[in-house]
């Protein structure tokens, strides 16, 4: 194939100045931010040395206090289950009341604000506040995760309701059905499966978070983990981490099975 080199077809590609500027800005930003945060290669290398020592102390994991570990894991699971049950229970009405296609705006407005508030704060912030309010122990963890659940399920459930078809609603309203019947027969059937989906996802998420709330004293295995850290008890720490990962993987496995049941 011979090309007609006499012709000038111009550049083969449009230069995408936005993309180039974006890459440049990205690199400049990374350099600036690393400098701002005092993230340097020397510190990183020094950290790697510490990390190696740290890992060496973690091996072999020390499972000798397995009874404490098991009791903590059970408490963690209990927190997750109770919080999920109440969180799911409360997010059902909250989600309904926040749906703009069902309720007037003076009702949806405060509930939407409440959901946004529950979502915006990381659970650990709630945990701190509840520990101050109700003292150390699993109760603070349960309350924390109830609020986190309302934030997550409430938002998705509201969005699901706002996407439903309004025709069955009109039919029932036209037939003179009372408000609760409209909700039960026209709204819930359309969104129940998705609600169950969100709920099983949140059960999983609550279990992950309940391993952490103990760090600030809200019950579960996190407290023991934090204590192990502070005592430099790194081989026990390794045992705790392994059991947390095992617990989370187990719950992921169970929730995939549950999802299959509801598909």
């Amino acid at each position: 194939m011979t090309a007609d080199t006499a012709k000038n077809f111009g550049p083969a590609f449009k230069t995408n100045w936005w993309a180039r500027a974006g890459w440049l800005a990205g690199f400049l930003y990374a350099a600036y931010a690393a400098n701002y945060l005092d993230v340097s290669w020397a510190r990183f290398l020094q950290g790697l040395g510490n990390g190696a020592a740290f890992l060496a102390e973690m091996v072999p994991p020390n499972f000798s206090r397995w009874e404490l570990l098991a009791a903590n894991l059970i408490e963690t699971v209990e927190i997750a289950i109770i919080a999920s049950a109440f969180g799911i229970l409360f997010s059902l009405p909250v989600g309904l009341l926040a749906a703009r296609n069902l309720m007037p705006s003076w009702i949806t407005w405060p509930f939407r604000a409440f959901i946004a508030l529950c979502r915006s704060f990381h659970p650990v912030i709630f945990a701190i506040l509840f520990v101050k309010a109700v003292g150390f122990g699993p109760l603070a963890g349960i309350l924390t995760l109830i609020f986190a659940s309302i934030g997550f399920i409430g938002k998705l459930f509201t969005e699901a309701i706002e996407e439903i078809s309004l025709k069955p609603l009109e039919a029932l309203r036209a037939a003179g059905a009372p408000f609760m019947s409209v909700i039960i027969y026209a709204v819930l059937p359309q969104v129940l499966n998705r609600f169950i989906g969100f709920s099983s996802y949140q059960l999983d998420a609550n279990l992950r978070n309940s391993t952490m709330v103990g760090i600030v004293g809200a019950g579960g295995i996190g407290g023991t983990l934090f204590a192990a850290f502070q005592r430099f008890d790194y081989d026990f720490l390794a045992a705790i981490l392994i059991s947390i990962i095992a617990l989370v993987m187990l719950s992921e496995f169970i929730s995939t099975r549950i999802k299959r049941v509801f598909q």
Partner: peptide, 26 residues
């Protein structure tokens, strides 16, 4: 890096011209 040899680019333009798609190249 889209640094194709100039010869390839010339050939591609010629080919696109011959099949009537030159104006769509970019």
């Amino acid at each position: 890096l889209r640094k194709y040899p100039q010869n390839d680019i010339d050939n591609a333009f010629a080919l696109l011209e011959s099949i009537g798609l030159l104006e769509f190249a970019r």
